[in-house]
Design a binder for these strands. Structure first.
Lengths: 132, 132, 132, 132
DNA sequence: GTGGTCTAGACCACT
DNA sequence: GTGGTCTAGACCACG
């Protein structure tokens, strides 16, 4: 079952949190291609946020090719993951990997701990995909 | 040799970029405890930004315990990495690890690619620390 | 009713005075968790100071966990007092207690006078909390 | 035996720390009227700080009537504590007492803890005075 | 020389 | 409307 929530204290913009959660549900296989997402007004109501916030989040996700807004019909998960080369993937993921490495050193962490955490999070996603 | 630069196109606030670069130099061992950082005015001049921007970046880093601003003397790298438990480190690093995992899935990447990237970035930092 | 004011003669920075006053209103129960504080622009206008000064005061209070700045929504008193151990409280309060004791001796004051003053100020806060 | 030290991380100006320490030694009876303090150049050398810092601290203390700088002879603790009325003492001490009370509430402390800390610090000073 | 505070005003991002 | 960032420039406090 999908469930969205906004943490107003985190400093992360509400629309960004929503985007991350949609991506998370897709990555974990809980949301699949063709599945319907809550309507803008419905989600705005249940989350208690301004509809404009949902509009922004859905708009950005559509721009990234993650979802499709079909006028009058609803919001749906796109049919397929965007195709890209490994080089492109590295380009996207490297800054995040680097930030993780730097923050880890800064926190006095070992490399092992970092690898363990990433492995864990990858594992969680794989496990959920298996269950569906 | 340390060298800072600001990318005004990236959308990331200048003060945030500066913070990341200082942390990077410390994580890679290029800057060590007690080392002096460029003065506010000096750095503002070389980067071509307003001194207030440097003040904000340095101020935040001071809050995080990374550097110390000493009135009339200058800016210095703090003596030691903040002491924290492994549980605390996980708490800080897990969201980053999770975001990396989700973005990787979203990009259609394999788990292997992610692990490889993190290993690479950790390796780069370790290598630089070794060289110093 | 809350009312802020800045004394430009005191030598204490305006942003520091504001921080103290916000803390005072919370300590006395006049401001409670979830209450909204004046917006940055509004407060800057009523106090006749630059918005950046309010930004600094509110920013520091946010760092201390006293208030939350919510983008596009406003500024709010944080939900709960920070949890800390008695040992941590002593660590924070002891320097202030010590300074008070030393200043008292220096002023030729009796210990009784000091205890009386502290008791009085604690009582005032408790009284206000009771009234709300 | 008197011993001064400066903490460069505390954020408190060095000259202020020195002033506080001189007052502390007098309040605790370790320094008495007529006792000689280290010379400016001597103290600057042992503390590793700029002589101007000592000049500022001693100057302020002289201004407050705590010490006397006798040209060519040295620096001495003043003969007597400044005489002031109880009303004046309250006026000086109340802001400190109030700040202590507010910070205590903010830290979620009980009134008992605060009173205990003040009592303790007063006791320490009295005990030292007794020993001398 | 250093950092710390403040003003006046602009433009952007979020809800 | 809200907060967040940044510029240009002034003046003060500290060492």
């Amino acid at each position: 079952m999908i469930h969205f929530q906004i943490n107003t204290q985190s400093g992360v913009p509400a629309y960004r949190q929503l985007m991350d959660q949609v991506k998370y549900y897709i990555a974990s296989g809980i949301l699949r291609a063709g599945d319907r997402l809550p309507s803008i007004r419905e989600l705005a109501h249940t989350l208690g946020v301004n509809p404009a916030t949902i509009v922004k989040a859905y708009g950005e996700l559509q721009h990234e090719g993650v979802i499709e807004l079909q006028h009058g019909r609803g919001v749906f998960v796109s049919e397929s993951a965007p195709r890209m080369t490994d080089a492109k993937r590295r380009e996207i993921l490297r800054p995040l990997a680097r930030q993780l490495a730097v923050e880890a050193m800064q926190a006095g962490s070992s490399g092992e701990l970092v690898m363990e955490l990433v492995e864990e999070e990858l594992g969680k996603l794989r496990k959920k995909r298996g269950e569906e």
